[in-house]
Amino acid sequence: MYGPHIDPANIRDQDLDEAARQGERMLAWLETAQEELDAIVGTGEGPSGQVKATVNPNGHVLGVTYGPRALRLGSLDLAEETLAAVRAACADAERQTHDLMREALPGYDPAEASAEFERLLGGEWH
């Protein structure tokens, strides 16, 4: 996780101060990085390569294109290929976002931070 581990049962003033400083650094970065984040476009394709999708960082589908042999797949397979392409594009957008965050905030791991947050809340968080 970004910065020191904090034991929720034994939080010290120094821990709170450091968490506040980290939060301020992250907010400052978010203000300046919004354009970079908005420019992220995730791309993905289905297993056959006949379906390609693009999404923004929020997972909104920007486009889906079908190759010349896509209609030979049948309706169910085409639907599965489309979903696979969109899922791959979402994963790509998330990876790009995490890479950008890691570059801007050395030592910060978004996946680890999310897991730690879920652990502290005692359940899954989305």
Rank of each mutant, 00 (worst) to 15 (best):
E36N: 14
D38L: 10
A39D: 14
A39Y: 06
A39H: 12
G42W: 00
G42H: 00
G42C: 02
T43W: 07
T43P: 00
T43I: 13
G44V: 03
G44A: 12
G46M: 03
P47E: 13
P47G: 12
P47F: 06
S48V: 01
G49E: 07
G49P: 04
Q50F: 04
V51H: 03
V51Y: 02
K52V: 10
A53Y: 03
T54F: 02
T54S: 11
V55L: 10
V55G: 07
V55D: 01
N56V: 08
N58H: 14
N58I: 09
N58Y: 13
G59L: 08
H60G: 09
L62D: 12
V64M: 05
V64I: 15
T65D: 11
T65E: 12
P68Q: 12
R69V: 11
R69T: 14
A70R: 05
A70I: 09
L71M: 10
L71W: 10
R72F: 07
R72K: 12
L73D: 03
G74F: 04
G74Y: 07
G74W: 09
S75V: 13
L76I: 10
D77K: 15
L78H: 09
A79G: 05
A79F: 06
A79E: 15
A79T: 14
A79V: 06
E80M: 12
E80I: 09
E80Y: 10
E80H: 14
E81I: 06
E81W: 03
E81S: 08
T82Y: 04
T82W: 02
T82N: 07
L83P: 00
L83D: 12
A84N: 13
A84K: 11
A85Y: 03
V86M: 10
R87S: 12
A88V: 05
A88K: 08
A89T: 08
C90E: 15
A91T: 11
D92K: 02
D92G: 02
D92V: 03
A93R: 01
A93Q: 02
E94H: 13
E94Q: 14
R95I: 04
D99F: 07
D99K: 08
D99C: 06
L100V: 06
L100M: 11
M101T: 12
M101Y: 02
M101H: 01
M101I: 14
R102E: 15
R102A: 12
R102W: 06
R102N: 05
R102M: 14
E103H: 14
A104K: 09
A104E: 05
A104N: 09
A104W: 06
A104V: 11
L105R: 03
L105Y: 05
L105K: 04
P106Y: 10
P106N: 07
G107C: 09
G107I: 04
Y108P: 00
Y108F: 14
D109L: 07
P110A: 04
P110K: 05
E112F: 00
A115R: 15
A115I: 00
A115V: 00
E116S: 08
E116W: 01
F117D: 05
F117S: 11
F117H: 14
E118R: 14
R119E: 01
L120K: 06
L120T: 01
L121K: 10
L121Y: 08
G122L: 02
G122R: 01
G122F: 01
G123L: 00
E124C: 00
E124T: 13
E124H: 10
E124M: 04
E124A: 11
